[in-house]
Write a protein that binds this DNA or RNA. Sequence first.
DNA 1: AATCAGTACGGAGGTAGCCTCCGTTTTATG
DNA 2: CATAAAACGGAGGCTACCTCCGTACTGATT
Lengths: 199, 199
Amino acid sequence: MSASEQKGRKPRADVQRNRAALLRAAQHHFLRHGVGTSLEAVAKDAGVGPGTLYRHFPTREALLAAVLQTRSEELVARQEEIAQLGDAGEALEQWLRALEEYFSAFSGLPEPLMAAARAQDPDNPLTLPCDTVITATEEYVRAAHRAGNVRASVKGYDLFLAALSVAWLKGAGAADEESLDRVRALIATGYRRERDTQA
Amino acid sequence: MSASEQKGRKPRADVQRNRAALLRAAQHHFLRHGVGTSLEAVAKDAGVGPGTLYRHFPTREALLAAVLQTRSEELVARQEEIAQLGDAGEALEQWLRALEEYFSAFSGLPEPLMAAARAQDPDNPLTLPCDTVITATEEYVRAAHRAGNVRASVKGYDLFLAALSVAWLKGAGAADEESLDRVRALIATGYRRERDTQA
DNA sequence: AATCAGTACGGAGGTAGCCTCCGTTTTATG
DNA sequence: CATAAAACGGAGGCTACCTCCGTACTGATT
């Protein structure tokens, strides 16, 4: 018993079934309609009543965090790939790109993530993943600092915010890919340390 | 008769009265609770029924645009101040700062502005102010390009998006002023053309 | 197999906000 | 003062949120 398991009773079958159905339905709806989607619709789609949904996931954030779990695992995988890279500057760049994709998983996701990042509310289920990526970003920045790839004034949290902003721009659909690429380049130019200023 | 006035009948007194009361109440509520505030509460506060509110302002955006009018005028005033400046780079910088403040007038404002900027829907009352500031930004960027203060790859629309993003960060309350300042600096470093790379 | 107790289910129902429709009231005008 | 056009306002239909509690299900025990 590592922590909070095996209370002596086998978990009920319907609980697991419903939880899985809810997660499946929720992912579908979040993808299709963004994080603001109707939770009642999710419940109906999963074939359960609203009460069941709220028992499993007391808040929208709880459901979101659970659905996001899959993406978090992808992010970890990306980190392992990135670890293969020799160049710390390149690693940071790829990490920021991965972050941005993570934040763009569902339209409207940046909003609650930001709220969680700021509030540091231990009851918010998004706080944990949020803190995790912030810490990771800080480490990438630290490495890039040591390698001299990034301006000294740049902090990890700043780049977290920048990635979140770009994801917001993307998710709100306000910008075509070209504009987004130029904004990304703008930010990259902003944090990179000039070693060879090309012309 | 310039366009659509003086239809032969004097405008009713109650119409003007109610409109003014609605605008006053709306500004108050937008300031206090953000752009997502309850419109019914606004109506009640203005002392009118919901029907009256919706007759005057058929959509939330219409009300928002009307309330924003005052701020737009402030922005024009800022433009005149900025016009006094000799340096195009300085002018651009101040304009972006003014833009950011404009976008931060109410919490949640960047969202509908972005939607309006993208959709180009002539029925959306926010499209006009949005286009206006985009055009103005493009002009400041053009001037700064000519003066050699800004990288050639940077477009006005990019900086509009950047200002909107910073306003979003600010309004969502996700960042302390220090972080925001560093993000602003990051962006500024990104668009400025390096002439004297300070050490 | 049958019972039992604990757990989970589900949907009814209270709350809130959106927006519309239409009978009533206000208003400018002759 | 009479009249018609214009505006009012609130009732009501809708959707979504979230909770509460009687009922149903499930795993354990005998």
